[in-house]
């Protein structure tokens, strides 16, 4: 790892100020950034550790019934803290990486990084969660802008994520067992006004909503309706040694049908 200055703010304001410096980078749980820096694929003059900021950790429910999760909340804390209130999200959190990774990695870090195969972006997009920063609130529909790209600006920190709780939801993950990331995963969320389907691990543009599945499932929320869909176009899919684009496109459909079945 190239050397850097580590700053450990204890409140949000200090963190915001520390990130004003040139080439400063926020450090969430470090379970992606530190391995990347160790491989010298990334570097920064200054890392601003967010782990000491109590005000961006924890889970609560707001007046609109939304589950509000602090950006610095670990996957393990989401797994235990949402088990009763939002079991589909708790289940997703409990399948990220492994127990040691889940004790450090955070929801804010995952959403800020927007890895095209990460788990949380699928939940955030399927629920149209609101991503909150120190400056503004961003609907998930406007937040994910492609592989490793988000609407966040320099120095902006994900302080909170607000999830409207679906009537039914399930995250179906076809795991790539070496990395523990999904090869393809689908989050299906059913609300009173329709069904939303978000896909991760498949597209080279990162997480996306599968419109055809949403339309079909909003009209008929059944496994048969999901099985009757045509798989999305393989053209824009990730193709690598773990699976080619056509295989990933096929998996999108299968994971979606399994997720619907699990909701019923």
């Amino acid at each position: 790892m190239y050397d850097f200055e580590l700053v450990r703010p204890t409140n949000l304001q200090e963190a915001i100020e520390a990130l004003q410096a040139e080439d400063a980078q926020a450090l969430g749980g470090g379970q992606t950034l530190l391995p990347t820096m160790k491989a010298r694929l990334a570097m920064a003059d200054r890392l601003v550790a967010l782990s000491g900021i109590a005000e961006i950790k924890g889970i609560c429910t707001d007046d609109n019934g939304r589950i509000c999760i602090g950006g610095g909340t670990t996957h393990a804390a989401v797994q235990s803290g949402c088990a009763e209130t939002f079991p589909a999200l708790a289940s997703l959190a409990g399948r990220i990486g492994d127990p040691a990774v889940r004790n450090r990695g955070t929801i804010g870090g995952s959403l800020a990084n927007n890895d095209p195969s990460a788990c949380y972006p699928a939940a955030a997009l399927a629920c149209n969660a609101t991503i909150v920063t120190q400056n503004r609130e961003i609907p998930a529909d406007e937040y994910f802008l492609g592989m490793f790209t988000t609407a966040l600006e320099e120095g902006e920190i994900v302080t909170e994520v607000k999830f409207p709780v679906p009537q039914a939801a399930h995250y179906e993950k076809f795991i790539q067992p070496a990395s523990r990331f999904p090869l393809v995963a689908v989050f299906v969320a059913r609300y009173a006004d329709g069904v939303r389907v978000a896909v991760t691990g498949a597209s080279s543009d990162g997480v996306f909503r599968w419109g055809e599945a949403e339309a079909a499932l909003s009209a008929d929320f059944s496994e048969d309706a999901a099985r009757g869909l045509t798989a999305p176009d393989a053209g824009g899919m990730i193709s690598d040694l773990h699976g080619d684009g056509a295989y990933r496109a096929h998996l999108v459909k299968v994971m979606c049908a399994r997720a619907v079945k699990a909701c019923l």
Binding site: L34, P35, K38, R104
Partner: peptide, 15 residues
Amino acid sequence: LNGEPVKACSVLAQE
């Protein structure tokens, strides 16, 4: 670390 398992290769000592 504070009672919970972590990968010590992915945690900064100063942090």
